[in-house]
Amino acid sequence: MQHEIEEDTKNKYLVFVLANETYASPLLQIREVIKIPSIKQVPYMVPYFKGIINLRGQIVSVIDLRVKFNLKDFKSDEGLILVIEAKGSLVGAIVDGVCSVQDIPSSDIDTNPALETLVSPKFFLGVAKRSDMLINLIDIGGSLSSEDFRRIKEVA
């Protein structure tokens, strides 16, 4: 049963938009997509760490991927939050919009294009060639869980 599910969703990606560019991440990493609720700021954090939200009683940190990737062309009060399961805890990532869920077989993915990408190569999964466009595939869970968003470090 478990295997069937994995087989079924292995090639499924959630396609989303960040400032006119198209990205996709493995669907299994994304738990839900929500509208942006009221976000409360947290001191000592990097500018793209937007703050915390109340997700049905759980406190979840939210990162604005558009600020993080230095994109210019967006409206900061618009967008959606992808709630991502990263290393057992939840992190929210703000994107401009969500397009679709697509089946992308691994044969369609070029894992080694000579491209400059926004994410570190470690979390860049490749470029998917679709009939009408190219989609950047990123391991969004891995990227968010390995990063340190603190502006000041612990004084130990």
Partner: peptide, 9 residues
């Protein structure tokens, strides 16, 4: 809080 907020003064 999430791990990313651990250890904030």
């Amino acid at each position: 809080l999430g791990l990313e907020l651990a250890g904030l003064p």
